[in-house]
């Protein structure tokens, strides 16, 4: 059975087993967040959880990697929170000399 998710007021279908990113791309959506400085659109880039370009809010939980999260029926995608708010910025100055 096909899953139905919502994104920006529209319904996005997903095959069971697809990731959130795959379902969005299959639905013709190529970007789902904007960058902090330049306000540039971003979507999938590395596809394997490395680059963090694909961050998305899933059911109210911010900063999920759309390429890793499995699509599920009734999922609410995208929203309110600023990307990056909940993640530890693991790379302050000085970390590089460890």
């Amino acid at each position: 059975m096909t899953h139905q998710m919502t994104f920006r007021g529209t319904t996005v279908a997903a095959e069971p087993g697809q990731s959130v990113a795959a379902a969005l791309i299959a639905a013709g959506v190529t970007d789902w967040r904007t960058t902090g400085k330049g306000g540039r659109p971003r979507g999938l880039f590395c596809g394997i959880g490395i680059c963090f370009d694909c961050l998305i809010t899933v059911d109210g939980i911010p900063d999920q990697r759309a390429c890793l999260v499995a699509a599920a029926d009734g999922m609410r995608l995208g929203a309110d929170a600023e990307p990056g708010a909940a993640l530890q910025d693991a790379c302050g100055p000085g970390d590089d000399d460890a």
């Binding site: 190529t30 971003r42 999938l44 880039f45 590395c46 596809g47 394997i48 680059c51």
Partner: peptide, 11 residues
């Protein structure tokens, strides 16, 4: 958007 890593497109 629309630019992916080759491995990402494959994945």
């Amino acid at each position: 958007p629309g630019v992916l890593t080759a491995g990402g497109a494959q994945a």
